[in-house]
């Protein structure tokens, strides 16, 4: 499976091989009225699980003009405990209503027993965790009747008991469950810095044939107890230069892949996001030609 066949399975609602932007309420009006030249939009389904109001009003309008991707933040696929059936049912309703071209979620957990912790918490890379996550991915794919993408996380700690590295862990889940992968290049950079490994090497080993989407976002900088760099994935600023370089490297390997600009905190004026998307698209065009894989003709 690759970006073509993933998109193909989503039929006429495919996400084009262009850059998209995370849709924010701050920009609803401007986007609905000016219909800017953007390939697609992505939203967190959790923000559209109410009965009505402006979220649905604007999402319907904007969905009428653009392909849409849903990017879940609350399923807690990495939990040992069961998935929240009510939440899964609400997600299935949204998928039916908005016919997204892609659905993705995180390799993380955020719920423990009844408490929703509202953060993407790390998973130990063990075979037992891999099996549990595969069961959850199967359950999600059955509920929404389509394959999902699983995203590589930003992490700040490691588990002494991990039995494999992150790429092997993710690839194993994807091969076993049939899901695709969402490659968050900022997360690769953040985690590689935080755990002192080579980000380019991570990309080189990543199974790019499974990648259906790429994320780009901003991070902030702190340090740990020993004064070593500790990058925080806060989606609160522009994409950093080394992340652009890593993105160029990833596209050079994978070919053109739908690429999202994520900016969730300290949200700038719309033109700033549009410029980030244009920069991603320019890089995608320049680098994809060098890829071994041929660019595909899915653009609408």
């Amino acid at each position: 499976m690759n970006a073509h066949s993933l998109a193909g399975r989503f039929g006429p609602h495919a996400i084009p091989l262009r850059a998209g932007v995370g849709l924010k309420p701050d920009h609803y009006q401007e986007i609905a009225e000016s219909t800017p030249d953007i390939g697609w939009f992505e939203v967190h389904p959790e923000n559209y699980m109410g009965a009505g109001g402006p979220p649905h009003h604007f999402l319907e309008r904007i969905r009428g003009d653009y392909p849409l991707s849903l990017h879940g933040v609350g399923l807690s696929i990495g939990s040992d405990g069961p998935l929240d059936k009510d939440h899964l049912a609400r997600l299935a309703v949204l998928v039916k209503r908005y016919e997204p071209g892609l659905f993705s979620e995180h390799l993380a957990w955020s719920t423990h027993e009844s408490m929703y912790l509202n953060d993407l918490l790390p998973v130990p890379y063990t075979r037992a965790a891999q099996d549990r996550i595969c069961e959850h991915v199967d359950e999600v794919q059955a509920a929404i009747k389509r394959p999902m993408l699983l995203e590589n996380p930003s992490t700040y700690v490691r588990f002494a008991g991990s039995e494999m590295d992150e790429v092997e862990f993710l690839e194993g889940i994807a091969r076993q469950s049939g899901c695709g992968l969402l490659l968050d290049v900022n997360n690769v950079y953040v985690s590689a810095t935080n755990h002192a490994y080579d980000a380019h090497g991570y990309i080189d080993r990543f199974p790019v044939d499974l990648v259906g989407e790429i994320h780009l976002g901003g991070h902030s900088r702190d340090e740990d107890d020993a004064g070593e760099p500790l990058l925080i994935d806060d989606h609160g600023s522009a994409v950093a230069d080394p992340v652009w370089a890593l993105y160029a490297h990833a596209i050079g390997r994978a070919g053109a892949v739908p690429t999202l600009i994520e900016w969730d905190n300290d949200i700038p004026a719309w033109p700033v996001l549009q410029d980030e998307a244009a920069a991603a698209e320019a890089l995608m065009r320049r680098m994809a030609g060098k890829a071994v894989k041929k660019p595909h003709a899915l653009a609408r």
Partner: peptide, 29 residues
Amino acid sequence: PVPAGIIAWSGNAPKRRFDVYRNNVYSSL
């Protein structure tokens, strides 16, 4: 204390690293 088995790559104390998660939970809510 930071739970057993949670480490930093350098072998140094992982407290500030774990505190990122602590802070994310409460500050996001």
